[in-house]
Nucleic acid binder design. Structure first.
Lengths: 254, 254
DNA sequence: ATAAACCTTTACGCAACGTGAATGTCAAGA
DNA sequence: TCTTGACATTCACGTTGCGTAAAGGTTTAT
């Protein structure tokens, strides 16, 4: 039995373009070409196509398939195991992605649930997105996943009142940092009050507080340009000032 | 603070090409372009880039990101949920793929374990690949996953002797079908013996046998071109002949 | 002044085809 | 016989998100 492209394509449930492509990349050549230039396939080609489709269904790339089909069964087995490893990696990566997306959705849902009026737009944008984006990785690395997970959980469970409170706290904190910074003395009462406020602000997100962790965080503000940029918006140079004040506040030498 | 491509790229941990590309597709335009044609970015652009990277980390396509960034938070939420759905689909698909690859690996491992000498190359190629490829789907659909899973399990557990036995049985079966077909009478003793052999052959793979299932399988040989082609290799037209003989053998009217 | 380090645009490459465009071939009906 | 419609052919561009030159202008440092 002989087949033209269309026939074979229908038999195999693929497109004619695919067959021409397979011809082009030398993965499946027709048995012969007739006088009009038509591709003619035979039984041998059907068998090969079946094998190709078999590996294709396993997600193997055409390039790999080409070499697989020409190699011994030993190498086929090896190739499959390598492919398997790749798939597992992909899966793990995908699961991480899904978890992150779910977390983000949960956050936005928590927010919209609490306020239909997008009252907390600015708050959320600053707190959640910036926190997850900027702080997420670093905090995860330094203090483990638990820290940021509980952070997210806390945000979800917060009442509107709490949101307002934190909003106010944040404003007060920034104000305090600014005034203290303008005064210039990290050991001043104003500066130490700012540190206290920063601690209170932090306590809203951290499950357990430690001076060391607090100091570490503020030091990180200084070390990472992105953090510095964020805090220096209050006043240029105030990130370092905050760190110095915090050294005194926590008594931790870093 | 102003940034050139290189500066911003280093800050964000991406390539300059990426920034130029984002400019090209209108996803992140520089604040201005200086007299030498250099791209100059500002704080606003940093913030936007952070948002872009945030969504990018979630696996959202750049096209979607562009619309997301211009839309309300409500629509952002919606887009995220849609994206989430897509990811779940992808995951499911990937898991299926992995399961199939694992199954295939298990099969080849079973085979190589049983025979280092690639003694069963032809057998394996015909039995496992063709079975899984051609028969897998249909059998699954008609008789559930259990049927083919137990089939695979059985193959794995088979001893070399059993392989030889089945090989011989297969040859006998084909021989019997051929002779019976040449005689031409589906009710002949030869034809009924072929049916009996086909049943014995089947029993090596099926956990429980039923006349109905057997008849259904053979009818499927007739209905599906690919099956027909396979059996007609013995002799053109013999698939239908086998079906007719099987009607008498099983007494099932289909 | 000259080299190093930066910037620019242009454009091909990647995987696996989809989707035309322009044109040739074949079997069948008026 | 002529035409129509279904098939075939070969280009060749589009898809995604950039990587990677190539060929050239600008800025900075020595």
């Amino acid at each position: 039995m002989e087949y033209t492209v269309k026939k074979l394509a229908e038999l195999a449930g693929i497109s004619t373009r695919t067959l021409r492509y397979y011809d082009e990349i030398d993965i499946l050549k027709p048995a012969r070409i007739n006088s009009s230039g038509y591709r003619i396939y035979g039984e041998t080609q059907i068998d090969k196509l079946q094998q190709i489709m078999f590996y294709r269904e396993l997600g193997v790339g055409l390039d790999s398939i080409k070499t697989i089909l020409c190699s011994s069964s030993f190498n086929k087995h090896d190739a499959l195991r390598e492919h398997h490893g790749k798939l597992l990696d992909k899966k793990q990566q995908l699961e991480l992605l899904i978890a992150n997306v779910e977390k983000t959705i949960a956050m936005t849902e928590g927010r919209t649930y609490m306020s239909d009026k997008e009252k907390f737009e600015g708050f959320k944008k600053k707190m959640i997105e910036e926190n997850e984006l900027k702080y997420g990785k670093e905090v995860r690395e330094k203090y483990g996943n638990g820290t940021i997970d509980s952070f997210n959980q806390k945000i979800k469970n917060m009442s509107e009142e709490q949101y307002d409170l934190i909003q106010k706290l944040t404003d007060d904190l920034n104000e305090a940092i600014k005034s203290a910074y303008e005064e210039g003395d990290p050991s001043s009462q104003l500066a130490q009050k700012a540190c206290e406020l920063h601690k209170m602000w932090l306590l809203n997100y951290w499950d357990q507080y430690s001076k060391e962790a607090h100091m570490g965080l503020v030091q990180m503000y200084v070390d990472d340009e992105r953090f510095t940029a964020y805090y220096d918006k209050i006043a240029p140079g105030c990130t370092v000032f905050l760190r110095n004040a915090m050294r005194i506040f926590t008594g931790v030498e870093e």
